[in-house]
Amino acid sequence: MPDILVRHIDEALADRIKEIAREHQWSLNEAILYALRRGVGLGPEEARRELHDIAMLSGTWESTETAAFRAALEAFERVAGRPLFVDDAAEDQAPK
C-alpha cells in the first residue's frame, strides 16, 4: 500500500481526528484512513478496515481493569506474606 504525506493540517482538523481516534479507540492512522474513506465517498461498509498490524494489539484499560492488574501485581510481589524483593539500599537509608 502506498504512503501519502499530508502537510499543513490545521488545529481544528487535527483535534477532530484525535477526537475520532479516542471515541473509537483507534490509532491516529486508523482515524485518518476512516475520515479519508468517508471524505471520498466510500460508505460505512467500505470505510471499515481490517487490522493487520500492531494497532490491533493496542488499546486502553478501564479503571476496573487497571485496578485488577495492580492487585494481581501486588499479590505476585509477596510470597508467604513477605516481599520477594528487598531494596537493601532503601533499607539502609530508612530511619530506625
Rank of each mutant, 00 (worst) to 15 (best):
residue 21 A to L: 01
residue 31 A to H: 00
residue 72 A to C: 01
residue 27 S to R: 04
residue 41 G to L: 07
residue 32 I to D: 07
residue 50 E to T: 14
residue 42 L to N: 06
residue 4 I to G: 03
residue 25 Q to V: 14
residue 47 A to V: 02
residue 74 E to I: 06
residue 70 R to G: 05
residue 38 R to Q: 04
residue 91 E to D: 01
residue 96 K to M: 09
residue 49 R to W: 10
residue 70 R to D: 14
residue 32 I to W: 07
residue 62 E to M: 09
residue 43 G to D: 15
residue 76 F to E: 12
residue 75 A to N: 06
residue 27 S to K: 01
residue 15 D to R: 06
residue 1 M to A: 14
residue 75 A to Q: 15
residue 72 A to N: 08
residue 6 V to Y: 03
residue 82 R to S: 06
residue 86 V to E: 06
residue 14 A to D: 14
residue 46 E to C: 00
residue 13 L to I: 08
residue 56 M to S: 13
residue 61 W to Q: 11
residue 8 H to I: 05
residue 42 L to G: 01
residue 94 A to P: 00
residue 29 N to V: 03
residue 1 M to Q: 10
residue 90 A to G: 00
residue 26 W to N: 01
residue 68 A to H: 03
residue 69 F to R: 10
residue 43 G to W: 09
residue 14 A to N: 10
residue 62 E to H: 13
residue 2 P to V: 13
residue 51 L to A: 11
residue 93 Q to Y: 07
residue 27 S to Y: 03
residue 67 A to Y: 04
residue 94 A to K: 11
residue 54 I to P: 07
residue 4 I to N: 08
residue 86 V to Y: 05
residue 95 P to N: 08
residue 45 E to F: 12
residue 13 L to T: 15
residue 62 E to G: 08
residue 79 V to L: 05
residue 27 S to N: 05
residue 34 Y to I: 05
residue 56 M to G: 11
residue 84 L to N: 12
residue 31 A to T: 02
residue 15 D to Q: 03
residue 75 A to C: 00
residue 96 K to Q: 14
residue 57 L to F: 12
residue 88 D to C: 01
residue 52 H to Y: 10
residue 27 S to D: 02
residue 12 A to S: 12
residue 33 L to C: 10
residue 76 F to Q: 13
residue 11 E to C: 02
residue 32 I to C: 09
residue 7 R to G: 00
residue 79 V to K: 07
residue 84 L to P: 03
residue 67 A to H: 04
residue 65 E to T: 14
residue 42 L to V: 15
residue 37 R to P: 05
residue 87 D to G: 01
residue 65 E to R: 07
residue 36 L to I: 15
residue 82 R to A: 10
residue 9 I to A: 02
residue 19 E to D: 13
residue 39 G to K: 05
residue 39 G to F: 08
residue 37 R to N: 14
residue 18 K to Y: 07
residue 74 E to V: 05
residue 8 H to S: 13
residue 58 S to R: 10
residue 23 E to G: 02
residue 13 L to V: 15
residue 72 A to E: 15
residue 87 D to H: 00
residue 62 E to R: 14
residue 84 L to S: 10
residue 28 L to V: 07
residue 45 E to T: 14
residue 53 D to S: 09
residue 76 F to K: 12
residue 43 G to Q: 03
residue 67 A to L: 06
residue 52 H to T: 13
residue 46 E to I: 02
residue 49 R to N: 10
residue 74 E to A: 05
residue 7 R to E: 12
residue 45 E to Y: 12
residue 91 E to V: 12
